[in-house]
Design a protein around this nucleic acid. Structure first.
Lengths: 372, 372
DNA sequence: CTGTTAGCGCCTTCAA
DNA sequence: TTGAAGGCGCTAACAG
């Protein structure tokens, strides 16, 4: 009963692109020996038969450096486009052992900082003729199950912006799958990684605040299983300790807007007044700013300074203009992709760590000059 | 020179999980007929040989409804886990014609509304044992090239939240690849789709504004190639015309924060004063709010009302509380996934359109009660 | 430069 | 229930 548009117009299943140009040919062949492509997707055999060559000739024709005579190639290409032939990626991957697919493991896709990273990574990988298999790792998701899928699909490599245990990292070596960690470092295992220098960035922020005369600090940290969160918290505390400030109040958030506000409330609950609040992410800083203004009726930065980290989009919105450290996402994603490709092409490449300095954004959420 | 950790500990390449439990066995076999798994990834043949069965038995063992004796199965499973065997997804896909992979085509990954959609879609697909091949379509990217990749990888289906021409939509039918459009409709071609009812939502917003006594309107629309943008613009204009308001000023943005601010400036350039501004997305509304406050020193909503659309995260932040229409993302993504799976399992399913009503969010960026 | 010949790892009839 | 055999579509030697 059902008729596909293809049958209606009487053309081959995959000739869409050639429909106009080949109509004459099709008609001409109507009565004689018509090219009768199969209803299934055409294979290299179909092309070979039609072009009067062997299947391997077709294969070579579409391979990067395949030796083939210009004339033969032309004939094959003609038939191929006519039939709408495309090499089957599955078969290619199965035989060659390279799929041109990279898995991306990302947690917290909704965290406002990752979308940019994800977009950049996929763009750069696409540029290099590589597809992206996306795995979103929620807090409650089964990482081992995900890794299982990664192995099964024979991806060429993995970029991971999610938490991985040392054992899990070791699995990559065993399976011979190149891995690049994004903004996180393994505890003890060896792995390639590209990070923004959280410690240096946080130190810079604290120093500016100290220089401006702030003395009573509060910190809104991340969950204790966050690599960057902990790194930033430790760096801030260390620098404060160097300045003789001990016993700084610390509360934990989960990087969300809401937890930023809740964090500020908790801090102001402990300490009556605070000169400066250090949030380890922009989103939490924004939540803190809104709560400071709305709930505590504080003027930012006049009554209190608030700093963040990341330099993500909303941080620069007029209402916030968060004083922060901006991660060089473009350079970092580029580095991640390059490192991965390098490891795909040369499996003897050893672990390497690339650390990028962040850029201080003055913003308007913190007073960074001394009160005269 | 290089020694993998595997060689160091003397276990098989893929025994990681069994390393502890099988150590005795390994030692016991040391002197006799040792299980010597290949350094390459073990195949069903390796398992079969070791378990003393045929390769097809192994295959059946891992197939959903394969008939196999419990005893045999147990033996196979034991050997399989011992060797760390996992079916090769490529080979499975090649022979069975089903890859359990769905392609996701998304544009504007950085647009703040999509991350949530993307996260939800991947979560729901993963739940159903389906992987996600991600394609990010920037404005300047080669859609046909992307489709080419989609065909090559034999994905089981596609969910598309990006612009597709009618010709491109027809290609899906020719290639027999199920397609579900997300928040867009084809011009004339047939395709399954799930959308939020933009027209109804925009109408509701306009009605509230009219009822509150607003009369001088301005619209910040989207680019003219955006389906939802145009739908919302048209609906707003139509409803305003019904109320006798013609010649409403319209400017176009690109859905970004910046373009919202620029849009407002352009509007206030044309008309000196405006009662209400209708932005077709929250992000542009937010940009407009910030500019209204910061540049024009207007109190929102006292001096001017601003409404958005989407109900995305930042819209509910204390600084904005945008009056808006919230899309039921959870229901929509669920519907999209279900529709796609239905079409994968039954290729005779015809085109279907599911339209979800949005939810009015009162917010505080618009005055929706008459001035007393 | 070209064709022949093996597989890649798996699913799926088909007999036994 | 089991095993043997034939592909799925392609790449990669290897001869000619």
């Amino acid at each position: 009963m059902q008729m596909s548009p293809v049958e209606v117009i009487g053309a081959c299943l995959f000739c869409a692109r050639e429909r106009v140009g080949s109509s004459a040919v099709t008609q001409g062949n109507m009565m004689s020996e018509e090219i009768k492509p199969p209803m299934r997707r055409p294979t290299s055999y179909d092309v070979a038969r039609e072009a009067g060559v062997s299947q391997s000739a077709v294969s070579r024709c579409f391979a990067p450096g395949g030796s083939i005579a210009p004339k033969t190639r032309a004939r094959i290409v003609k038939v191929a486009t006519q039939l709408g032939y495309r090499p089957n990626a599955l078969a290619q991957g199965l035989i060659s052992g390279r799929t041109k697919i990279v898995a991306l493991l990302i947690s917290n896709l909704t965290n406002l900082y990752y979308p940019e990273v994800l977009a950049e990574l996929t763009r750069r990988l696409t540029e290099r003729d590589t597809r992206v298999l996306l795995f979103s790792l929620g807090a409650e998701s089964d990482v081992d199950g995900v890794l299982d899928q990664v192995w099964r699909h024979s991806v060429d490599g993995v970029i991971c912006a999610a938490r991985l245990s040392d054992e899990q990292i070791l699995l990559f070596a065993e399976h011979r799958v190149p891995l690049v960690l994004y903004n996180r470092m393994p505890d003890t295992a060896q792995a390639a990684s590209v990070c923004c220098d959280s410690a240096a960035g946080e130190r810079e922020l604290v120093e500016k605040l100290l220089a401006a005369g702030h003395r009573r600090f509060g910190i809104i940290a991340g969950p204790d299983d966050s690599y960057v969160g902990e790194e930033r918290r430790r760096a801030a505390l260390a620098r404060l300790a160097d300045a003789g400030l001990q016993d700084v109040a610390v509360v934990r958030g989960d990087f969300s807007y809401e937890s930023g506000g809740a964090g500020l409330r908790a801090l102001l609950d402990k300490e009556k007044t605070l000169d400066a609040v250090i949030a380890v992410s922009d989103l939490m800083a924004i939540g803190a700013i809104d709560t400071a203004r709305d709930v505590f009726d504080l003027r930012i930065p006049h009554d209190m300074s608030i700093v963040g980290f990341d330099g993500s989009g909303p941080a620069s919105w007029t209402s916030y203009q968060v004083t922060s450290i901006q991660q060089p996402v473009a350079r970092m994603t580029k580095a991640a992709v390059m490192m991965l490709i390098e490891r795909i092409e040369d499996d003897s490449a050893t672990a390497e760590r690339r650390l990028f300095a962040g850029k201080f954004i003055a913003g308007k959420s913190a007073r960074i000059t001394p009160r005269f």
